[in-house]
Amino acid sequence: MPADRPPPEGPSAPEDRSMLLDSARRTTEVEPILTVHPEPGVAKPNPILTMDGLRRSFGGLTAVDVDHLEIERGIVTALIGPNGAGKTTLFNLLTGFDRADHGRWEFNGQMVTSPSPDRLARRGMVRTFQLTKSLAKLSVLQNMLLGAPNQMGERLWAAPFRHLWRNQERTNTERADELLEQFNLARMRDELAGTLSGGQRKLLEVARALMSDPALVMLDEPMAGVNPALAQSLLGHITQLALSGVSVVYIEHDMDVVSGISDWVVVLAQGRVIAEGGPWKVIHDESVIDAYLGRRRAGTEA
């Protein structure tokens, strides 16, 4: 568990590693990415997601136009950019919630040929949404259990026969309880998800996504609308994820957050990747600042 969580109230996580240790481990693990030259579309040592010529336009408006982009495995990548830069659209394309006009991408070494959200999710690419999609009339635990993959009891023919899926359900429940404990939601276990606060729902959504042990988690503005205390804990979870080997891509507006937890930052403006690199470098890049301030550089005009 991350240490940068607020002082826990009541029963709390036993792990109490120091922040120092965390950062130390992180530095050693992400070292390869530091050797990558920070320029748009650069190749990475061990990419989990590689896209080529990805384009999507609405009417005459080009929302996404990415020539080449690689997402490195096992690190936290931030996707930033001004409003309307196409970040969510890019997420939607990659996760199969929207169709690209053209382009192709490779996930975990395999070409994605017919992108359907459920198939991609089963292959290990799980996403969350900008507006949380907690399932209001299901309990928090039920929400969690939905995230578990390959459930026998989700097949219609097996559904009426409890003994066929009881054991699996028990294992999944244990795993869910573990995650709920980690995410400080254990108290709410049996409440309806619709009664949670906005921030708790964000946490639930991330925890639920982890039920399937995904290879890549894509979080769309996980921090938006979350109160500062919860946001801190969420940040901790994201860092922790990368440590446990899960790749994370997230969309974020807050530059402090971005520079705080990202190993790599990709900047999107008007659908294009205009910069990428280590957080410090990118955030102080002239062209990025220009993009945020709405100025156009002569170079991107073409």
Partner: peptide, 10 residues
Amino acid sequence: EDEDAARSLG
């Protein structure tokens, strides 16, 4: 409740 959420969970 939300079919996109169900989709995103596989």
